[in-house]
């Protein structure tokens, strides 16, 4: 959004808007997100209690050997990269490692963590993150994420894409819901119908 504004401004003022143009690439890869709310999407979801939508519920949930992935989502973008967020629950007996992901929709997919480097927000590559038995791991804005690179198509709100999360114990494939470009959490799309 900043990029669009700056591009428009840059056009309007001919060539005198370099500060803005720079800002745009300074914030590359991160929409200046406002507020992230760790558990709200889950609690909110449970409180809603729409049993009629069990199918849709299954749509947002995937499980393999005690590892559950819940509510995967990303933001609408036309920029070729996107961050995928999801909540991982380890209901098994052993520690598991989330090692990355892959998706047919993107050329690359890697696990990244948010850092503020020299005042600029960036996401750095992480080889893996462990989840202990009985614990949850939240991939959320300004924290952990799967970064998709080289997206084949722009992502529009309401779209879905398939992402395979890679654990040391196996792969978990699930739907990723595309939310608005400034979303801060999964919207439980199915429940609003």
């Amino acid at each position: 959004m900043i990029r669009t504004t700056s591009a428009a401004l840059a056009l309007v003022v001919a060539l005198a808007a370099p500060g803005l143009a720079h800002d745009a690439h300074g914030q590359h890869g991160d929409q200046a997100g406002a507020h992230h709310e760790e558990d709200r999407d889950e609690t909110g979801h449970n409180e809603a209690g729409h049993h009629d939508h069990a199918e849709e519920e299954a749509h947002h949930l995937a499980e393999i050997e005690g590892v559950r992935a819940l509510h995967a989502w990303t933001r609408a973008t036309g920029e070729g990269t996107a961050l995928v967020f999801v909540t991982i629950e380890n209901k098994g007996e052993a520690e598991v490692k989330l090692e990355g992901a892959e998706s047919a929709a993107a050329k690359t997919a890697e696990l990244v963590g948010f850092q503020l480097k020299d005042g600029e927000p960036t996401y750095v590559y992480l080889p893996f993150v462990s989840v202990k038995p009985g614990r949850k791991l939240a991939l959320q804005p300004k924290g952990l994420a799967i970064r998709l690179g080289g997206l084949e198509q722009p992502l529009n709100k309401g779209d879905e894409l398939e992402v395979e999360f890679e654990f040391d114990t196996g792969h978990l494939e699930m739907h990723v819901q595309v939310e608005a470009a400034d979303a801060t959490q999964h919207s439980h799309a199915g429940h609003q119908h």
């Binding site: 900043i2 504004t5 401004l9 808007a17 500060g19 803005l20 800002d23 914030q27 200046a32 997100g33 406002a34 507020h35 992230h36 948010f114 850092q115 503020l116 005042g119 927000p121 300004k142 924290g143």
Partner: peptide, 20 residues
């Protein structure tokens, strides 16, 4: 760092105004 970045994000609007 993440909290600060959120504050910087909120201030981002101010930053844009300053750039403009």
């Amino acid at each position: 760092g993440a909290v600060l970045s959120q504050l910087h994000g909120l201030l981002g609007d101010v930053r844009q105004v300053m750039s403009v």
